[in-house]
Write a protein that binds this DNA or RNA. Sequence first.
DNA 1: TTGTTAGGTGAAGTTACATCA
DNA 2: AATGATGTAACTTCACCTAAC
Length: 198
Amino acid sequence: MGEGSGLMRGLDINQVPSGAEEESMEEEDDSPNGGPPRKKLRLTKEQSRLLEESFKQNLSLNPKQKEDLAMELKLKPRQVEVWFQNRRARSKLKHTEMECAYLKRWYGSLTEQNRRLQKEVEELRAMKVGPPTVISPHSREPLPASTLTMCPRCERVTTNVPFKDPTRTTITTTATNHPATLSAKVPIFHSRHPSTAC
DNA sequence: TTGTTAGGTGAAGTTACATCA
DNA sequence: AATGATGTAACTTCACCTAAC
């Protein structure tokens, strides 16, 4: 349905940066299907620079902007359009790759955090001494070890409130800031206990 | 007001060519 | 010189939106 089918079929785009091609650029390529192989334009440095500059200002162009830019670059509007489409795609791909890398780091961090906490749980269990020594800031009462968690940034043990099940042995972390629901934002630690806690 | 149609556009995926190691 | 990898211009298809009717 889009302009791609039919309209642009067989419309080979060869850059002819001579100025006299404005006319010929508008007409369809007379090569039939299966005709001569399509040539591939390589944009000049200056063209790329201008396109990039324009892209920084607008991620997409309206018809007038497209026309003007094409005129300025001595390209067809369609070429400018295609360039912007591909540029947006590259931009998105890059962002996705960065997000993927971030998630991998986050996963690694969580794995490490989990490992430390498991170790701590084991240690606390092994101690088998009476009541834990951590005092709740709220009730002023000693807290069970299972309510404790550790901030991986400051390495301090903090409480995992609200506390409901004293028999629970696994330590859960609140996932309200899961990065999958964010868009490449950083940070997750300290989410439950901001400035004052650490 | 609602439904239909055509045209325009963007996203996603693919193809094909140019370039380079 | 031949070749495989890579980058990217160009293409295809689909979905969505909007204006005209």
